[in-house]
Structure formats: structure tokens, C-alpha cells
């Protein structure tokens, strides 16, 4: 790493300006308002210290939304990363890659609102295509969205459908960056396919896997649209997530202070969850 010069300062300037202008104020606003009782609609504001946080921690629904969010993140991210990685390794060599690559991208490209609504239609108990197809193989219709036990899983499935391609792409790309000759020399020494996978491929994929884990964890913690469209957070509390909770308090009741307090907590939780990857990402960017 070299010492900075005029050029680097000029290079950094635009980005720093954008961050200073567009993110510093909003971030400070969020942190400061979390200590206020702020009713945005009525314009009332008063300093209440940590009361927003106390109220938040006393509210059952907040804990339920936290539990749902964490289940959602863990299951969805694990499924996406496992599935995406497995598929990438499977398709890295041999036929069909190009076809798959183009087709599998589509779910990522469609507008989220239409995606959610199409799934809602497919999940419909009476008219939905999924129950109809299940009927063909003799499976009784399933209450995908209206059963308290299944609703969250159904939404996880749509998330996995939409975002596994992202994992697949990134992992595939880094697989293709692994030089062929490593495998060749390994097979010279008599390594079989599973040994290659375990001792060469996976270790080399580690940074990429960490990256997608981090990105997916951050994004999945903020999942909102799918719940909003598919179940409205119900039935009961079954699909209430933190972002939904923040949205309701912030934009339906305009308890702005309370809602920002909840988002600060969310940010802390995300950091807690991703501290391991965050550290690694920061470290790698230091090393070079």
C-alpha cells in the first residue's frame, strides 16, 4: 500500500462528498431521534432518553418480530448459500452452463412487487397452481399463506427462489477464476474428486462465500416487501418482521422516534450477526 497523493485525494473527493451530503445527516438524524419522542404527523417532540428503547424491549410484538426475522435470515441465507454453492460447483464444468446461467438469472431481474404478487397467486389455496399441481401427485391442498406454521416458510421459499441465483453467480465466477492446473497437479498426486472439492475448491471459495453470506445477511434482515404483499404480516404474528414493525410504527402511526430506535436496534443486530464476516472483509481490504 502506498502513501496517498493529490490524485487519490481528488479520486476520493466525489465519494466523500456524496457520503457527507447524503448519508451523514440521515444517519445522525436516526441516531438523535431515537432518543426523542417524536410524533412526525403532529410535530410533537420531546427528549426522553432511553425510553424508546425500554418501551421497545417491553413490547411482545417486537420480540416476536425479532424471532421471525432471525428465523427468516438463518433459514433463507443458509438455503440460498448452500443451494447456490452446490449448483455452482455442479455446473462449473460440463454442459448446460450457459443455458442455466441465463435462465437462472431471471428471478433476480423482475420487479419485486410483481414477483411477490405472482407468488401470492400461485400460493392461493383454491385457485393457485401449486396446489393444483400437488393434486396431480395426490397431495392434499396446502394452506401456504394462511397457516400460521407455514406462512413464514412460504415466504422464505420465494426469497430463496429470487436470490439463490445471486449466490450462484458470484460463486460460479470465483470458481471459474480457480486455475485449471491446480486440479491437474492434484490429480497427478492421485487426489479424487471429493478430495479436490474438500481441499482445493472449498478453501479457495471461502472469501466468495463469506462475501455472499454477508451481503445476503444484510439484505435478508431488511426483508419487507414480500411480507407486505403476501401476508400483510399475518396470520396473526406469523410473518411480522422487524422491518415491518419499523414500517408500521414509523409510517402508519408516525411514531418516528420509536421507529428509529427500532432501526438502531436492527442495525446493531445486523452488525452482531455479521461481525465475523465484517471483520474479515475489512481485513482483506487492509491486506492488499
Amino acid at each position: 500500500m502506498r502513501k496517498s497523493n493529490t490524485m487519490t485525494h481528488i479520486f476520493l473527493l466525489p465519494a466523500v462528498v456524496v457520503f457527507l451530503v447524503l448519508t451523514v445527516y440521515p444517519l445522525l438524524y436516526a441516531v438523535v431521534t431515537s432518543f426523542y419522542e417524536l410524533d412526525f404527523l403532529k410535530g410533537d417532540i420531546s427528549f426522553i432518553g432511553l425510553d424508546n428503547f425500554n418501551k421497545l424491549f417491553e413490547h411482545d410484538v417486537f420480540w416476536i418480530s425479532l424471532r421471525n426475522t432471525i428465523i427468516f435470515v438463518i433459514v433463507a441465507v443458509l438455503m440460498e448459500v448452500l443451494l447456490g454453492t452446490a449448483l455452482a460447483i455442479y455446473f462449473n464444468s460440463g454442459k448446460g452452463l450457459k443455458l442455466i446461467r441465463t435462465a437462472i438469472l431471471l428471478p433476480m431481474l423482475l420487479p419485486p412487487i410483481t414477483v411477490a404478487l405472482t407468488w401470492k397467486m400461485m400460493y392461493d389455496y383454491e385457485f393457485g397452481i401449486i396446489n393444483y399441481l400437488l393434486g396431480w401427485i395426490g397431495v392434499a391442498p396446502i394452506e401456504w399463506l394462511s397457516s400460521s406454521n407455514l406462512a413464514l416458510l412460504s415466504i422464505i421459499i420465494t426469497d430463496v427462489w429470487q436470490w439463490t441465483p445471486f449466490v450462484f453467480l458470484i460463486i460460479l465466477a470465483s470458481l471459474q477464476a480457480i486455475p485449471e492446473d491446480i486440479y491437474e497437479s492434484a490429480s497427478v498426486f492421485g487426489a479424487n474428486a471429493s478430495q479436490c472439492l474438500r481441499y482445493i475448491t472449498l478453501p479457495l471459495l471461502k472469501p466468495a462465500i463469506i462475501l455472499v453470506l454477508l451481503l445476503r445477511t444484510i439484505d435478508t434482515f431488511q426483508v419487507f416487501e414480500k411480507m407486505y404483499v403476501l401476508t400483510g404480516g399475518g396470520p396473526g404474528n406469523a410473518t411480522e418482521t422487524i422491518t415491518f414493525y419499523i414500517y408500521r410504527h414509523g409510517f402508519r402511526y408516525f411514531e418516528t422516534g420509536y421507529a428509529t430506535a427500532a432501526s438502531i436496534v436492527l442495525v446493531l443486530i445486523i452488525i452482531l450477526f455479521s461481525i465475523f464476516y465484517l471483520k474479515r472483509v475489512l481485513k482483506t481490504s487492509n491486506l492488499s
Binding site: K42, S147, G234, P235, G236, N237, R252, Y253
Partner: peptide
């Protein structure tokens, strides 16, 4: 009441929980 949005949302959440058999 100026709190109607919140009243409705909260009440509706419990009604939905009852309907879904959670309570």
C-alpha cells in the same frame, strides 16, 4: 380518535391471531 391507525392495526393483529388459532 387520532390513534385510530394504531388501534386498528393492534386490534386487527389480535383478531387475526384468534382467527388463526394462535390465541
Amino acid at each position: 380518535t387520532s390513534k385510530w391507525s394504531q388501534v386498528e392495526d393492534t386490534w386487527g393483529m389480535y383478531l387475526s391471531q384468534i382467527l388463526a388459532g394462535q390465541l
